[in-house]
Each structure stands twice: as C-alpha cells, then as structure tokens.
C-alpha cells in the first residue's frame, strides 16, 4: 500500500497523563503513519467528529483514569451511529485484565496494557485495518 495509514491518537476523559499517547504517536509516525494528535481531555463526541473529518483508518485511545469501560465503548457506538464502523478502534492504558473481554465485545479491537512493545501495536494496526483502498 503506498498511501500512509492515518491514525487519530486521542486521550478521552479527564486524566492528564499523556506520555503513553505521545510515545505511541511518535512510534506510529516512525512506522510511516500519519498521526493526528488531538491533545488531552477529549469527549467521545469530539473524538468521533475528528476521526470522521480526518478520514482516519484507526482511532487509538489512551486512558489512565479508570473510565475506559464507559468511554471506549461510547466512541465505538458513536462511530457506528455515524456509519463510520470501518474505522479500527484500539485502546491502551492502565486497564485491568478482567475488563478486556468486555471491551473487546463492545468493539474495541485490541487493548494494549503497560509494557507492550510499540512494535506490537504497529503490527496489529497494519494487520487489522479494515479499509484497503
């Protein structure tokens, strides 16, 4: 594929810890992707509107506040409402193992917890983006 993969890296919710998001943004950039970074404290509505206008292939969210069970599925359902369910959604942050099956069931394709090598996230995105053209 000669076009770059476009990824929205977003921080939903109220925690201000964006180091993880910045590390992943940088790693995806170095993997040849176009990364749109939108900054801290985004609502699901803001994330979804940005994802649509930027026509991204992937929404990658990072949460360290504990609100993942609410915010991640909300983004997925808003994307579906807007007919943008061809966008791959992944999440990361401090997320208990017990929560992961429920999040996957809600449509988050993969959850990356602390200690995951960035290469794993890159490979996952490359292998799973839904839009080919």
């Amino acid at each position: 594929m000669d076009r770059p993969i476009r990824v929205l890296v977003a921080k939903p919710g109220l925690d201000g810890h964006d180091r993880g998001a910045k590390v992943i943004a940088r790693a995806l950039r170095d993997a040849g992707m176009e990364v749109i970074y939108t900054g801290l404290r985004q609502t699901p509505e803001q994330i979804v509107e940005a994802a649509i206008q930027e026509d991204v292939d992937v929404v990658a969210m990072s949460i360290l506040s504990g609100a993942h069970n609410h915010l991640f599925p909300k983004v997925v359902s808003l994307l579906r409402e807007k007919g943008a369910d061809d966008i791959l959604v992944v999440g990361g942050g401090v997320i208990p193992d017990d929560d992961i099956p429920g999040l996957k069931e809600a449509g988050i394709a993969e959850i990356f917890t602390p200690g995951t090598p960035t290469s794993k996230a890159i490979e996952f995105i490359k292998a799973n983006i839904k839009r080919l053209a």
Binding site: P4, G32, V35, Y37, G39, E45, Q46, E54
Partner: peptide, 28 residues
Amino acid sequence: SPFTGGALLGDRIRMQDLFTDPGVFIRS
C-alpha cells in the same frame, strides 16, 4: 518525515472547541 513518510499532525490540539461545531470542518 522525509525518511519514513510518517507525520505527526498536531494543529488540532489548539482547536478542540471547534471539533463538534457543525459549521467547521478541519483537515490535517
């Protein structure tokens, strides 16, 4: 990036209030 073809597009960070305004369309 001239080396990887990747990019970090960060202009939206300063425009967050505009994201959900239906009269505004932003493209990075």
